[in-house]
């Protein structure tokens, strides 16, 4: 029963990781930018939600999510147009340096403004509600909702990419930036929308996580790594792969914790990641097309 429990909780945790990971993968896919600030950008929305609802909640933070999503979209769009567009074509190193700098700025900025103490978002009743499957097995509503949201978000992103004009433009830019410009696509705008959408998705995970547990300004680094691992395990460029990657990572972490003790949770995830990387370097569902 413990095993089954760890696996189920791991799958649900994986949904959360994939919410962090699809944004990273979207940004890398459309502009080949490795965004080292991505982890910190998953922490930021929880603080924005905290500002909106206040520390003695004026209303349920769940209702703040759409508003934070809009704020993060606009922030992402402006960040891209104002800063990151200038490094997209100046080589990998420029992007790494600038986003690393951003990561530090966000982390220290949050510490300065909110201290390094852990904070929480109180969503009331729902945090403790669960579905009892048997005496020893219960699924919390919140983790289940997060997982369902992840599936819905990924399905929606998939539809957006395959069915809409904008999604088509994203894929064209990803295939061949210069050809896309010659066809009349304003790549600066497309990249900014991609960053906006990435941060909008990340917001869902970031705020939900803030409700489920606590958060502090230092969480970004771990989340960046989990997101990376989920993307690589699943395979570049595949959204469903990213969900699968998140699930594999989540299950590995919780099984590791079960077998070796809680202290081993994170390491178990890394070990499984390295093994998969060695056996299947392109991940499970990689989608790569060349001319």
């Amino acid at each position: 029963m413990d095993w089954l429990n760890a696996i189920i909780q791991g799958i649900l945790l994986g949904g959360l990781y994939s919410l962090f990971a699809v944004g990273l993968s979207l940004v890398f896919g459309t502009m080949r930018l490795t965004n080292l600030a991505h982890g910190d950008l998953t922490v930021l929305p929880a603080y924005i939600a905290l500002i909106i609802v206040g520390s003695t909640p004026r209303f349920n933070p769940l209702y703040a999510i759409p508003m934070v999503m809009v704020i993060m979209f606009v922030f992402g769009y402006l960040l891209q147009r104002g800063v990151l567009n200038f490094v997209v074509n100046s080589g990998d190193i420029a992007g790494v340096i600038v986003t690393f700098g951003m990561s530090i700025v966000i982390m220290n900025g949050l510490q300065e403004a909110f201290t390094a103490n852990s904070q929480g978002l109180d969503a009331g009743q729902i945090e403790n509600m669960s579905i009892t499957l048997s005496d020893q097995l219960a699924i919390g509503w919140l983790p289940l909702i997060i997982f369902i949201l992840a599936v819905v978000v990924i399905a929606a992103l998939q539809l957006y990419m395959s069915r809409t004009k904008m999604g088509r433009a994203f894929r064209a830019v990803s295939d061949d930036q210069e050809a896309a410009r010659l066809m009349g696509i304003n790549t600066k705008h497309i990249w900014a929308v991609a960053m906006g959408v990435a941060l909008l998705i990340v917001t869902i995970g970031g705020v939900m996580m803030g409700i489920r547990t606590t958060f502090n300004p230092l969480l970004g680094a771990d989340r960046l790594i989990f997101a990376f691992e989920a993307v690589i395990i699943g395979g570049m460029g595949s959204s469903w792969g990213t969900l699968l990657g998140g699930v594999v990572l989540g299950v590995a972490q919780l099984l590791g914790a079960l077998v070796f003790g809680p202290a081993w949770q994170i390491l178990a995830g890394h070990v499984v990641f390295v093994i998969i990387l060695a056996l299947r370097p392109r991940g499970f569902l990689a989608k790569t097309v060349t001319a």
């Binding site: 433009a169 894929r171 295939d175 050809a179 896309a180 009349g184």
Partner: peptide, 19 residues
């Protein structure tokens, strides 16, 4: 030529009409 390799023929044409 620089066609978009991952897009279908039809999608390539639609990108041409982007503006």
């Amino acid at each position: 030529r620089r066609v978009f390799p991952s897009l279908t023929v039809h999608e390539n044409l639609l990108i041409g009409a982007y503006r």
